[in-house]
């Protein structure tokens, strides 16, 4: 409320403010949100630096459309295909939700890879943001696994055989490969349990991991700040000034051009040995 407000406050507003204060005093959520929203970021940021948020937005979209699909989908070999048919042909907007989920998967892969490229070419993974990169790389791998496990759930020919091949590829890994393949298939053969296992991995295991790693990724980003593009105007000006200062120092040290002084400042002189010391 502005200070020009006079007279008694509306009791509803008063109660609302009191409730808000109550929560803020115990959680600091207002302070935290204020810090998060109004903290400074470098003046110049690239449009390419919006890709990370876009990937997260697409993850949110996949979560919402996935929840809606899960309301109608039946993870049972006898009814899975039919339930997908029902979603596509009968449920209101079902075709749209399924289409968004399917295209969203491809879009997420594209955006995640573009985000990776941006971070790589900007050198943003360098000190102090190494661990942000690691969490992001794990998120990328988990995104790929989401695509792999979701593929089977449609339970059509293409999905089935591609997943059979994928599981056989897993089984070819040395030592633990066959065990992992057995875990994925829920046994030595591809069977009814395989579908519900992939359903659980696709819906619970990987999304849980991704949510955790998105949290870590965001924590590191807000703690370390968004990287400044290496070609920003401010950075270029700093580099020009540094170059100029270096040249000026060089010129000063070169009376009559007699000898070259190394560009880098010379190391501190070695300490002299004290005579007589053992």
């Amino acid at each position: 409320m502005a200070t020009t407000d006079i007279g008694p406050k509306n009791p509803a507003v008063k109660a609302g403010e009191a409730a808000f204060d109550y929560v803020d005093k115990r959680t600091g959520v207002k302070t935290g949100a204020k810090w998060f929203m109004f903290r400074n970021i470098p003046a110049e940021t690239s449009w390419f630096q919006t890709l990370g948020f876009t990937a997260m937005a697409l993850f949110g979209m996949q979560a919402i459309t996935g929840i809606i699909l899960a309301m109608y989908y039946k993870p049972d070999p006898n009814s899975a295909f039919q339930s997908v048919e029902v979603i596509t042909n009968e449920v209101t907007w079902g075709w749209l939700v399924r289409g968004m989920h399917k295209w969203g998967a491809s879009a997420m892969i594209v955006v995640v890879f573009l985000h990776l490229g941006r971070v790589f070419f900007f050198g943003s993974y360098k000190y102090p943001r190494e661990l942000t990169w690691v969490t992001g790389a794990i998120l990328l791998i988990m995104t790929m696994f989401m695509g792999l496990t979701g593929y089977l759930l449609v339970w059509d020919q293409k999905a089935y055989w591609a997943t059979v091949v994928a599981v056989n590829i897993t089984a070819s890994a040395p030592i633990i490969g066959p065990y992992i393949a057995d875990i994925l298939r829920a046994g030595p053969e591809f069977g009814p349990e395989t579908l519900s296992r992939f359903y659980s991995i696709h819906m619970l295991v990987i999304p849980g991991g991704m949510a955790t790693f998105i949290g870590l990724h965001l924590f590191l980003i807000s703690k370390l700040g968004i990287a400044e593009p290496p070609y920003s105007k401010r950075r270029m000006a700093v580099e020009r000034a540094e170059e100029e200062a270096r040249r000026a120092a060089e010129n000063e040290r070169l009376p009559y051009g007699r000898r070259e002084v190394p560009a880098v400042a010379p190391a501190t002189p070695e300490p002299q040995k004290v005579e007589g010391a053992s």
């Binding site: 929203m37 400074n40 970021i41 003046a43 940021t45 400044e228 950075r235």
Partner: peptide
């Protein structure tokens, strides 16, 4: 860079 920067909301 942050000192000379702009707030996250609304610029980013």
């Amino acid at each position: 860079a942050k000192l000379e920067g702009k707030p996250f909301f609304p610029y980013a």
